[in-house]
Design a protein around this nucleic acid. Structure first.
Lengths: 335, 335
DNA sequence: TTAAATTACGAAAACGATTAAGAACAAATC
DNA sequence: GATTTGTTCTTAATCGTTTTCGTAATTTAA
């Protein structure tokens, strides 16, 4: 392993000079700097991130706090895409990604402790229980954080537009003549609350009276629970003409149930998804759904987080909503 | 931030003593050790992984090299599960996970350079182009590696059983009376080669003569390409009675095409998947498929990697095949 | 010509841990 | 009583960087 000292010996300068030259300090004459860089290249020098981090207190490492609840947190196309674009953007700025969890070795630690132990410069938090005390402790610490799809007061958050999305979806099916609209929603989170509120508000504005049994709880990204909810909806005396699903993936559970009952989409029943995953655009009929801009969310999260790390004094926390897009397929029938 | 020195001052001992006490060295009397631990706890001491790594040359960090080709590498339930169980097992032994990529900041680096820069103790490699020179360089370096589903000579590899799986699947549909069996396979990788070879071998053993047009290329985890392949198969004069898909997820593309053509599964055509993802077990009819034990693969990969790190002298590289399991659904009709 | 400013570099001290070698003391051995 | 052994702790070096401060040489200003 070739170190700065090796280079300094070879070049006949001090290690301080080498360090400065390689870091582009203008204290060093262009001539010597060029020479040092050349020798460093020839010797195959690689900086030692560990030593650098120890000295500078900057690890150039970002923590990622994702909980894989259903053993599929990352299999979730939405979060997976967010993580990926977050990673790409972070790497563009020279940051690496480390997963944060709460048990390392035999010692259980809080998320905050884990971050400190690893000297994370910042953390992105997504898909977790935002009411977990350990999460709250982390968010309230002095470590820069950005959350996805949840706002902690006055801390940076990047959100998908869960209000507009549901409004537009409901308006869309309304325009197609639907009045009996059912809504299968995910488990109780701030995202779900927003979507539900938007659903009720929009229905009210449109003068729709939605019976209680049209609102069914399910679990995000769990097709089975949506299948069960669908079954219940289909067995109602006054069957809805359109069902909104928690997400595209869950819809597949519903789809299966619908087809099992010998019903056709959209002729016998209309459906609407959420997320705009790849798959949904391959199915025939194409699913009408809401495309969340996961790529932009991840990118923006990284960008904000890095800003807050690099200018801790002047950075102002922001709550940023990333717009999505209505994808009109053929899964909603015009009545 | 409280350091060992702070503790040593408070306890009136040297920092060496504190370090040894906290690391459970038996050089220190149980009495002092207990006292030091108590004070450390009270002061909220956390070891500094960076400093420790610098001194010991052990970062307790494992690199993960996953390429997100289709922007969905991690959305892939199989790989996502592997990564997750890998992570869980690694954390159990006190290792953290860092993603490895090839561009950090403005400087492009090879995977090996990235690993060295971050002082990774070892790397797991999966879902990449195993013929990429940068990957090969990494595997041939002195950094311990373990690959998933690909064997580099005499280096540790964990594999799903791609030979038995295809054999059992083919035998299964054969037993159900199918003779015209089509196979949609993924892009050309060593996994695909194994599966194809196993397919041909099994067919031969069963005395089946599979026409060339029954073998269709597609792309793993890309429903659209499987949809196209399905379309071609369905338009053949001599239509197959059963189609094997590259993976469950891709099958959904095929399913969509089949239904669009007014055909029913399994009455009009039988289908078989691969992977055993959650979703496939929710669909009706339930998909007959092969369940890969992703959880075991990830766990074993971590376990082997850590072993090779902790006993570099005595560790013997191993190629381990993890058995899977035939999941019989209702997607294959008895002829 | 002299003083002040600038440039280009070096010496040395960190950062927070680990660890080899040594010292002080008590106990055991001869 | 002298020597050895063992226990428990300390000293000091080290890991590979960065960075503050100092200094010599050169340039500029007065």
């Amino acid at each position: 392993m070739v170190t700065i000292k090796d280079i300094s010996l070879r070049c006949g300068v001090s290690s301080a000079t080498v360090s400065k030259a390689l870091n582009g300090s203008k204290e060093i004459s262009e001539e010597t700097a060029e020479y040092i860089r050349k020798v460093a290249r020839e010797m195959g020098y690689l900086p030692n991130a560990t030593a650098r981090a120890l000295k500078t207190k900057r690890s150039n490492n970002l923590g990622v706090l994702f909980i894989d609840k259903t053993q599929s947190g990352l299999a979730h196309e939405y979060f997976s895409k967010i993580l990926n674009s977050f990673k790409v953007e972070a790497e563009r700025s020279g940051f690496d990604i480390t997963f944060i969890s709460c048990n390392l070795g035999q010692t259980r630690m809080t998320y905050l402790e884990h971050c400190r132990y690893r000297n994370c410069d910042g953390v992105v938090i997504a898909s977790v229980d935002f009411y977990d005390p350990s999460v709250i402790e982390l968010v309230q610490s002095d470590i820069p954080t950005v959350t996805i799809d949840h706002v902690f007061d006055n801390r940076t958050a990047i959100m998908s537009d869960n209000v507009s999305s549901v409004r537009e979806l409901v308006q869309h099916v309304y325009e197609y003549g639907h009045r009996k609209i059912a809504f299968i929603h995910g488990e109780d989170t701030s995202v779900t609350q927003k979507r539900l509120a938007s659903f009720f508000k929009t229905c009210e504005e449109l003068g729709l009276d939605i019976p209680e049994e049209y609102i069914k709880p399910a679990i995000y990204h769990d097709p089975e629970s949506s299948r069960i909810a669908t079954k219940e909806l289909l067995s109602l005396k006054e069957r809805p003409t359109c069902i909104l699903y928690p997400d595209d993936y869950s819809f597949l559970g519903g789809m299966s149930e619908i087809e099992k009952n010998g019903l056709q989409i959209p002729n016998d029943i209309s459906v609407v998804g959420y997320d705009g995953i790849n798959l949904a655009q391959v199915l025939r009929p194409r699913l009408t759904t809401w495309k969340q801009d996961a790529e932009a969310i991840g990118r923006e999260a990284a960008s904000q987080l890095i800003k807050s790390i690099e200018m801790p004094k002047t950075y102002i926390p922001q709550q940023i909503t990333i717009p999505g897009q209505l994808l009109i397929g053929n899964s909603v029938k015009k009545l």
